[in-house]
Design a protein around this nucleic acid. Structure first.
Lengths: 173, 173
DNA sequence: GGAATTTATTGAACTAGTTCAAGGCAGATC
DNA sequence: GATCTGCCTTGAACTAGTTCAATAAATTCC
């Protein structure tokens, strides 16, 4: 356990600072101890689409880039001042080799992320924007409070103007 | 390797047969050796939404239900006569325990599924229905050929009428 | 503390995709 | 060979969500 923890190096980040930019190779996997991050992509028209937000106790990385040394499709930006614990690929590999339980742990974590994402795909297909907005507030009230409408909109896949209209409608009830 | 393979039991399935129905506990993980399957959910209004299709060499399961013995959110149905190799949870656990390389293999497979699903979420946010339709045809031409418009529509999250309109538009070009 | 920038709200005009209903075609079934 | 069932197509009317533009409110910055 000590050996495992010793592989992580803390890094302080300022609001708006990028941990990773699209196109770079992602050389770390990060555990958030403080702050709030957005993990997103930018398409050719410059439109941003948020994959997820990470707050305390969440992980941040572009797994594909990290495991395959490929240019990242994702960017990771701090929305607040914060701190992450970073582990490098070589260290992670050697931990996997010496501690199979850690590999099991990460397999299970990845599986949970997969299930969560499967449900999100289904929600995107079956729910209206308003229902998805309410689901997001219900599922992550603590995160939602820390975000602007702009970020919520790019997570839900709608415009921020429409988020505004949804809020007005809900407020009138 | 032999021990690993011996844990899988073949099962023949007829077209339209269900391997799993929403609400049941999923007691297997299946490897498709022949045929084509749809993995989908049904919402309260009876609208079906397809999570993915599995053909030869793909896996079928409701991971969440399988790993946690929880009622499945997903149904799995054969779209053609086919065959799957099924493994049960106890056998899989004992393989994980005795063969760490298999656990690594499944971790990597799960990671790849996660990356694929992340990209799908992004595509759903940034592409139009027509662009998603074309992407699907380009990415899985062999699968697309075996499906009805109805199934493609429920994968893309649009109506089958609209798939029809997209096709007409593309044909006129 | 005020200027500058970013974010939120609102409305009017628009469009991508839906809904409903009808008709045509093809393959299975007897 | 007729009938049935499921699938595909089409059109007209509709709606959820967008776009654009303008204004208000809140934060950031010096």
């Amino acid at each position: 356990m000590d050996a495992f923890c010793a592989s992580f190096k803390p890094r302080q980040v300022k609001k708006k600072e990028y941990l990773l930019r699209e196109g770079e190779v992602c050389r770390f996997e990060g555990f958030v101890t403080q702050g709030c991050f957005r993990i997103f992509t930018t398409d050719r028209e410059g439109l941003e689409s948020t994959l997820y937000f990470a707050v305390e106790d969440w992980w941040v990385t572009d797994i594909d880039s990290f495991t395959n040394h490929a240019p990242a499709h994702l960017s990771i930006q701090a929305l607040e001042d914060g701190e992450v614990l970073l582990i490098e690929k070589a260290d992670k590999e050697s931990i996997y080799a010496s501690m199979p339980k850690v590999e099991k742990l990460f397999r299970i974590m990845t599986q949970k992320s997969l299930v969560a994402l499967q449900r999100r795909v289904i929600r995107n297909h079956t729910l209206t924007a308003e229902e998805r907005y309410l689901h997001f507030l219900g599922a992550y009230p603590d995160i939602a409070r820390r975000l602007t409408n702009l970020h919520v909109a790019s997570y839900l896949g709608i415009t921020h103007e429409f988020v505004s209209k949804i809020r007005r409608k809900l407020a009138r009830k």
